[in-house]
């Protein structure tokens, strides 16, 4: 599984980067995104859900969050 580190990237650039990363993976594949606490973890999951992807889970790690997404096709 690919891990995309979006820590230190602010909104909405983190979402756009996540979107670009998801373009490169196949449908049904899962991707992990590392997100900062605060606005990023509040906004990015919701925006990716709005794009139609499947949110599989969210876990707190050391000082950040790990969001697991399954890519849903065009």
């Amino acid at each position: 599984m690919q891990t995309i580190d979006l820590r230190g990237v602010s909104c909405p650039t983190n979402f756009v980067k996540a979107k670009l990363a998801l373009e490169l993976v196949d449908e049904g594949e899962t991707v992990e995104f590392l997100l900062d606490d605060g606005e990023p973890v509040k906004n990015v999951p919701r925006s990716l859900k709005g794009e139609g992807h499947k949110l599989l889970g969210l876990k707190e790690a050391e000082g950040h969050y790990v969001l697991t997404i399954e890519k849903v096709g065009e």
């Binding site: 999951p45 949110l55 969210l58 707190e60």
Partner: peptide, 12 residues
């Protein structure tokens, strides 16, 4: 509910 905690995280 899958206990992901996103709702709690999102609730301002």
């Amino acid at each position: 509910c899958i206990s992901c905690g996103l709702c709690a995280k999102s609730c301002a």
